[in-house]
Amino acid sequence: MFTQLFGNYLLNRGLVTSSQLSAALSAAKQTRAKLGVLAINAGYMNAAQVDEVHNEQQRIDKRFGDIAVDKGYLSPGQVEELLTKQGHAHLQLGQALVDNGAMTNSSFAEALSSYKSENSLTDVDFDDKTGNKVDELIGKLYSFADAENSSVYTEYVSLLFKNLIRFIGDDFTPLAPEKIPSARVSFCAKQDLKGLGFSCSTMMDTSEQAFIAFASRFAGEQFTDADEMTEAANLEFMNLHNGLYAVNLSNDEGQEITLLPPTCEKDTVVGGPVYRISVVYPFGTAAFYITV
């Protein structure tokens, strides 16, 4: 999840465009973070030193690590340590951005350093499997401070991101939440949640093309039309996500909520106010709405 949140940071700061980010997220899985990016991330080398080693590699047939050790920028032990971190997803994203020419080693180094410092993140946090730090970051970005049950919304969004990773794919960038008076939806899967302490409507709206692509990923098969089956698949995603949310709410807060059968809405306006949380996938944007 650090990758998606870091992507959000890069986008918000205007350091990359949405299409550059989408392309890099698609490529990231096939990308192994190179030693230069890893060394910058670890603070062992600066961008100028990395560029110097890269230039050296154009002239002599030696590996990055060997040249960096020769120049005294890295110790053999540090090279070994960095190689174990090649699979870190946010670094793979960084590498893909550098490879695509969307960022330079230097701009990536600066962005990563600012991101870590603004969010008090260390390398240890990126290895944290408890998810506490991710929850903290999500809580900061999606605080819903003006809402009565703000933590309920934050937990909803946090679980949504986890379920998107689990059922649809991790190649998305979440955008900042917006509060809007009403929502015009085109292809929308909607489900109402009713409880004593908390009731709301939840929706996922996409373009027709993204509706088909989202359903295809969820079902694990290729759909070509926005028909009954794609509708059923997307409604089931909402039902599954909301069901898991209801379980968490019951276990953690002792609050019981009932889910109503999900429905599909097309080309209609949903009254608000509503919170909109958009996530950008390579196949299109999915806007999730929760009524206030």
Partner: peptide, 8 residues
């Protein structure tokens, strides 16, 4: 079978 596997 349900997505809402609460104790209740």
């Amino acid at each position: 079978a349900s997505s809402v596997g609460t104790q209740e």
